[in-house]
């Protein structure tokens, strides 16, 4: 009896959000025979890739107790610059693709630098600064593109976008996964990563112990910009268009994935693996609820409910972890 209780505690404590994901997958597999197929899992992987990439950066920012509302707009702006570069007829294909990648990553890192610098230099909460950036980037994207969708990318670029490895794993999922692993390693095993946690927990203490917290905070926003730039290229690979109106609401999906994954909105607590599982939960819900035949309105309600439920469950996990320690 005691043993089994211990076992349940162990699962709850270590599994947490992963357990919710497994339950969801099990339920959908039973309810809809077409859910648990290779093709469908391949679809889900493709559908969560962009959100996963953005959420990697978002995790850094939220761990600091900040937030980045500008990711969706920055993504749109990045696709526009990259789209202009990649469709430039004067450039050889290879150069066009390379400059598109540089443009996307460059502009979104610049946006991140602005977000970080302004919020640190004038001690303004990132909520406001990135809200401003949300509008600036969207306006710039519309201005530069003349509100037009850019299309007709090089064939080799489009082909790579729809490629799957072992006919299961989409190319853009691999990019997202690598980004997530890099994000995880930096967070876990570097001074920079540990500093992010420390600042999120108690910025004053870190500052008093002689560290320049501002540099770390700005770097986190720049890193978030980097992941947005990569996500912009992934978007272009997936849909072969660049548009100034895309990415509306992407910030909310990334914040949801991060928070479902157990990262605390007040900072200092959370993990990259959790964020990845959070993104998986959103993707599986989106896919599974449709396949079992729920209509639009029901899907929206159930998704909302499960997001809250997952986070509530997570608070129990925390409590358990605390009592176990004691």
């Amino acid at each position: 009896m005691i043993k089994s209780k211990k076992f349940i505690n162990f699962i709850l404590q270590e599994g947490g959000i992963g357990l919710v994901l497994l339950i969801l997958i099990a339920v959908f597999s039973i309810a809809a025979p077409r859910f648990a197929t290779v093709t469908n899992f391949s679809n889900i992987m493709q559908q969560i890739s962009i959100n996963t990439a953005i959420s990697v950066g978002m995790t850094y920012v939220i761990l600091l107790g900040g937030i980045d509302l500008s990711v969706g707009s920055s993504l749109a702006l990045a696709t526009i610059l990259a789209g202009k570069a990649i469709t430039n007829p004067n450039l050889p294909v290879g150069v066009a693709i390379a400059s598109a990648c540089l443009a996307a990553v460059g502009i979104s890192m610049l946006a991140g630098l602005f977000n970080g610098f302004v919020s640190v230099r004038w001690k303004i909460h990132s909520f406001i600064v990135t809200l401003g950036m949300l509008n600036m980037a969207r306006g710039a994207a519309l201005q530069i593109s003349g509100s037009r969708t850019i299309f007709a990318f090089p064939a080799v670029f489009n082909r790579f976008g729809t490629m799957t490895f072992f006919s299961v794993i989409p190319s853009i999922f691999i990019i997202a996964f690598v980004l997530m692993v890099i994000g995880h390693i930096i967070l876990r095993y570097t001074v920079f990563g540990r500093m992010i946690y420390a600042i999120g927990n108690n910025e004053e203490a870190v500052r008093l112990s002689g560290h320049n917290t501002g540099i770390y905070k700005i770097s986190a926003f720049v890193f978030c910009g980097f992941t947005v730039g990569v996500a912009a290229i992934m978007y272009m690979l997936r849909l072969n268009i660049a548009s100034p109106i895309l990415g509306v609401g992407f910030e909310l999906n990334a914040i949801a994935a991060t928070v479902i994954g157990g990262t605390s909105m007040s900072g200092g607590k959370g993990s990259m693996i959790g964020t990845f599982l959070g993104a998986c939960i959103i993707g599986v819900l989106n896919n599974g609820l449709l396949i079992i035949g729920l209509d639009d309105n029901a899907r929206q309600m159930v998704t909302g409910f499960i997001i809250v439920f997952a986070v509530v469950l997570d608070t129990y996990r925390e409590k358990l972890a605390k009592t176990q320690k004691e």
Partner: peptide
């Protein structure tokens, strides 16, 4: 996303 999922269903 919607059409990919509907194609599965």
């Amino acid at each position: 996303t919607l059409v990919a999922n509907l194609l599965t269903a």
